[in-house]
């Protein structure tokens, strides 16, 4: 269900993070994207109040991966009633860390000339997959052996109509790297790695059976 560009990184469609009725007329919809190695919060601010809005600023609560605004929220002109503006806020990953539940939850405070408002949103963990996340094959095999069985989680991905090569190249656009592919009993087994911004490596096996739209992923 991706709306991402075919070879680019996956970015979900914008959703409403802050409804106007909860924020004295300020509506914020947004999404997260990773563009050329930069994590961005992309937002549409809509003024559904009767007076102009100015003096915007944004702050995050500490979060699992230290996401923090890399600079101020750039709203350079007042936002009039019924007006919308688009803002892209670059994020750094060196902010204060606190484990959140769920892990990718982000608590945000936005202020304007009217008040301070709070909302939560969840970012796709793939925002944190760095460009140099392709593990050496030898290291992958050794690491795979070292990981205790209890650390493995398995998921079904339903209704995916790509063959394993197409899936592999699409995933690579989001910095999920295929290190090896083997076919056993008609099943493609893809061994993949990714590295999070905090240096943690994730190893995965993706199983794709020809004609079966359900994949199995083990991480």
């Amino acid at each position: 269900g991706s709306v991402g560009m075919p070879m680019g990184a996956y970015s979900p469609p914008k959703s409403i993070w802050l409804p106007a009725m909860k924020a004295k007329g300020l509506e914020i919809s947004g999404t997260f994207a990773r563009r050329a190695g930069v994590i961005q919060m992309e937002m549409t601010l809509t003024n559904k109040a009767m007076s102009i809005m100015t003096d915007f600023a944004i702050q995050f609560n500490r979060n699992s991966f230290g996401l923090a605004p890399a600079g101020p929220l750039q709203v350079l002109t007042p936002v009039g009633p019924n007006q919308s503006i688009e803002v892209a806020l670059p994020l750094s990953t060196v902010g204060p860390v606190m484990k959140m539940e769920p892990l990718t939850n982000l608590q945000v405070a936005v202020k304007n000339n009217i008040d301070v408002f709070y909302f939560s949103s969840q970012y796709p963990i793939s925002m944190l997959f760095v460009e140099d996340g392709k593990m050496e094959r030898q290291v992958f095999l050794a690491t795979w052996k070292d990981i205790p069985n209890d650390n493995e989680a398995q998921f079904q991905i339903k209704d995916c109509h790509l063959n394993s090569d197409a899936a592999s190249s699409k995933l690579q656009g989001s910095n999920v790297f295929t290190i090896a592919k083997r076919t056993v009993e008609g099943q493609d087994m893809l061994y993949q790695s990714m590295k999070l911004t905090n240096g943690i490596w994730v190893l995965a096996e993706l199983r794709v059976q020809a004609g079966n739209p359900n994949y199995t992923v083990s991480t």
């Binding site: 094959r137 030898q138 095999l141 795979w144 090896a180 083997r182 076919t183 056993v184 009993e185 099943q187 087994m189 061994y191 096996e205």
Partner: peptide, 20 residues
């Protein structure tokens, strides 16, 4: 030789995961 060894190791891994 190392590359051959790694190729084989991945084949063994895939095999063992399919038929544990």
């Amino acid at each position: 030789e190392l590359e051959d060894g790694l190729d084989e190791a991945f084949s063994r891994l895939a095999e063992s995961r399919t038929n544990p």
